[in-house]
Write a protein that binds this DNA or RNA. Structure first.
Lengths: 192, 192
DNA sequence: TGCGAGATGTATCGCATCGATATAGGCCAC
DNA sequence: GTGGCCTATATCGATGCGATACATCTCGCA
């Protein structure tokens, strides 16, 4: 997905500056989409150039001036077209799972630490974000509720899986070590 | 995570060429990590330069020559260090959820089509991959089992969520349309 | 027999994007 | 009063994806 569509979508819900747009993206999309200034500012410039948004410079007392963009009729049409044409995709990128894939190369303590770190992160950071988002003042749109419910469901099932499988995996790793202590020591020595 | 660690990890399980390495990455990591040739070949060159792998040119009859890399003792040590130091992360990137976030800008038919496409993809493509992977000839390591179990759990909960919420969301979207048909038509007309 | 499609194999290039940083004034807490 | 954070715009280097180039062999199909 082009960052332009995302910007257009956010602006369609209310005029805002690049800075404000980035904050919205962080608040609302953080769990499943990210966009940096390096994407946002060029996207806004391009959207304005092609007439899909209109930028207006706003002078602020006691604050840096800002440039607020509002969507045009052409922009609204282009957004509808883009949302109708975009093919949905969903991918994960998990250093965590790569690490776990190589669990046999980890000490049992390290494996436990990695799992515990991730469990805490999913539960105390990400699920807490979801809770806070749902308790916001403004009522959520149907789509926002769908997305947040998706996140909550996935996070819950992840946390449950990690809790369920943790001890069994650690036990397996300990047993594997016991089976091949000689080779382990040889490799450890070779590594020095 | 640096692509070098991934390459080193794969090579630690058996010497292979860049091409074979990419195939392994696709087969084993596809659901949670991807690496292109543009990452792999430079990573292999760098690993060889720093002595963590040793490359050997293999001439093949009826096939292009290839360069097979095997891990060195220094490489094994560096891999262990990297896996011990790497901080685990896990992120999603979902054009699908961005689309659903803007559900109120989609026709109910389009929303249904998007959900159905993704449901089919998660179930018939990704879960089928997981099934095939678990039924492979070679027994899985403990870490591979953990990673594949993680994937299966998440995919199952996603499919269940999509099935559970689909009709309710579509009904909501239809109701929203009924509430504001005049504005919809005005906007549609303005878009022409 | 011929021919296109696809597998094996190495390698690079353009493009988009990330994350960090530059710049700059105002706010607030200690 | 001063260090750190917020508001705000903008760019830059590095990274890595996805596509492509190039070469050769196999296999299915007509």
């Amino acid at each position: 997905m082009d960052a332009k569509i995302l910007c257009l979508g956010v602006i369609s819900a209310g005029a805002c500056s690049g800075y404000e747009l980035k904050k919205t993206v962080e608040e609302d999309f953080h769990h499943f989409y990210r966009a940096s200034y390096g994407s946002i500012y060029p996207a806004l410039a391009e959207l304005e150039r092609s007439g899909l948004v209109a930028g207006e410079a706003i002078e602020q007392a006691k604050r840096p001036d800002k440039k607020v963009y509002r969507i045009t009729d052409a922009g609204r049409a282009a957004l509808a077209d883009a949302l109708a044409a975009e093919e949905p995709a969903h991918t994960a990128r998990s250093e965590f799972l790569v690490l776990m894939y190589f669990a046999h190369l980890l000490t049992p303590d390290r494996a436990a630490q990695v799992i515990d770190t991730m469990t805490a992160h999913f539960e105390r950071v990400m699920l807490a974000d979801v809770d806070a988002y749902e308790r916001r003042a403004e009522p959520l749109t149907s789509g926002q509720r769908f997305a947040v419910g998706f996140g909550r469901t996935v996070l819950n099932s992840i946390v449950e899986y990690l809790r369920r499988e943790r001890d069994g995996l650690i036990d397996e790793l300990i047993a594997e070590r016991a089976d091949q202590p000689a080779e382990d020591r040889r490799l450890a020595a070779a590594g020095d």
